[in-house]
Simulated scan of single mutants.
Amino acid sequence: MRTDDPAVLYLLVGPARVAVEPVQQFLRDFAAQGCSPSSVRSYAYVLLRWWRWLLVVGVEWNRATPAEVGDFVLWLPLASKPERPGTTMDRKGAVNPITRKRLLDQRYQPRTVRHSNAVVRSFYEYWIDEETGPLINPVQLARGRLGGVRRVHAHQNPLEPVVPGARLRYNPRVPKSTPRAMSDERWAEVFGGLRSHRDRALLALAVSNGARASELLGMRLCDVDWGEQKIRVVRKGSRAEQWLPASAESFVWLHLYLASLGSPLGSDERLWWTLRRRERGLGLVRQPLTYDALRAVLRRVNAMLGTNWSMHDLRRSSSPYLGDANTSANVIWPRPGTSACAASRATSKPGLAAVHQATEALAGPRRRG
């Protein structure tokens, strides 16, 4: 449940509506490390599922063993998620014929299970360090080929790049999926289904620079550089400020949106506002645009087109567009805000010139040495 405590906005309560002290202390330490409220909320929901599982099997949290974790991982893909407003109830799990994306179903996916294991392991690592929890961590690492647990980077050569360490023992494997990208025709359909200049400006910025939806919604008027055609966003996780170039078309729609507001905005005011005025104790005033309101905009477009596009698809479409223009990976990498250049290369594709060169080289006669 959400609380009024500015330090920890979320609280896990038991059946008697009493706060679960081990989880509350862990979340307070987690928030003190500079983690965002959304991360605290995500960790709280994972520990809520784990606590409910322990109540069902009748095991105290400090007496959990790898056996309970293994059963929990086996149960998660079979359990049904709570219903969320706004989700499509019909044909869940089917593939949309237009976007070729699978509709969300009520089952937990492998990525969710892996995230759950990581959160539960960090929870027990905290209490083991405090010397008041269990003696061993129930979420253990995978065993090596010789039967023992592999120590991460035990024989790492300092001259070689660091490779990922051992995976968790009960982590399911995640299949590698092809990068999603919206074609020009589909983008024209989505853009034509928008109702306001605000929505057109917001989505045009998202598809031109690859910024996250939360980063765009947190912008203020002073974060727009009209001369250089750049916008300033605060990156997720690192909270670093970064100026990103945007298309000229997005600035045209942004100008039309600001003109439609009627009254000019202050330099330190939020950039995105609701179109309708609502009563919040101060009369009929505009409210800051939230992520749920932005999702409602896409839901209306998806209902009209029979699609299931998301803001993440717009974000990932910017890298393939730059790849088609033969843009260097060093230019593509900073835009999505990924932690490594390899992550940007996974979502971008080579340009047409590189594809033609590779095709001609493979189709030409081979020389024998």
Rank of each mutant, 00 (worst) to 15 (best):
M1S: 09
R2L: 01
D4K: 08
Y10W: 15
L12C: 06
V13L: 15
G14K: 09
V20H: 11
F26L: 07
D29R: 05
Q33G: 08
G34L: 04
C35K: 14
C35M: 13
V40D: 12
V40E: 15
R41L: 09
S42F: 09
Y45C: 08
V46H: 11
L54H: 01
E60A: 01
E60D: 10
R63I: 02
A64Q: 04
A67Q: 14
V73L: 01
W75V: 04
W75S: 07
R84K: 15
M89V: 15
D90P: 02
D90L: 07
D90I: 06
R91N: 09
G93W: 01
V95Q: 00
P97V: 01
P97W: 03
I98R: 11
I98C: 01
R107V: 06
Y108M: 04
P110Y: 01
V113L: 03
H115G: 07
N117Q: 13
V119S: 03
S122M: 07
Y126K: 04
D129Q: 02
T132N: 09
V139T: 13
Q140S: 13
L141Y: 12
A142R: 15
R143C: 05
R143S: 10
R145S: 13
R151V: 14
V152F: 11
H155K: 08
Q156M: 07
N157H: 10
E160S: 06
E160T: 09
V162S: 01
L168I: 02
R169K: 13
N171A: 03
V174D: 13
T178W: 10
P179Y: 05
R180M: 06
R180Q: 08
R186K: 07
W187K: 01
W187Y: 14
E189P: 00
F191P: 00
L203E: 04
L203W: 04
L203N: 00
N209M: 08
S214Y: 01
L216H: 03
L221R: 12
D223P: 02
D225R: 01
W226H: 07
G227D: 11
E228G: 06
E228Y: 02
Q229A: 14
Q229W: 06
K230G: 01
S238H: 03
S238C: 05
S238D: 08
R239Q: 15
Q242N: 07
A248W: 11
F251T: 05
V252G: 09
L254S: 04
H255K: 13
Y257M: 00
S260E: 14
L261I: 10
L265W: 10
L265N: 09
T274L: 01
E279P: 02
G281F: 14
L284I: 05
L284G: 07
A296I: 03
R299G: 07
V301E: 12
L305G: 03
L305K: 04
S310E: 14
M311P: 06
H312V: 00
L314V: 05
L314F: 15
R316N: 13
S317K: 02
P320W: 03
Y321P: 00
D324C: 04
D324M: 10
A325P: 05
N326H: 12
T327M: 02
A329L: 15
A340Q: 15
C341Q: 14
A342N: 09
S348Q: 10
G351F: 10
L352C: 02
H356P: 00
A358R: 14
A363I: 03
A363H: 08
G364T: 05
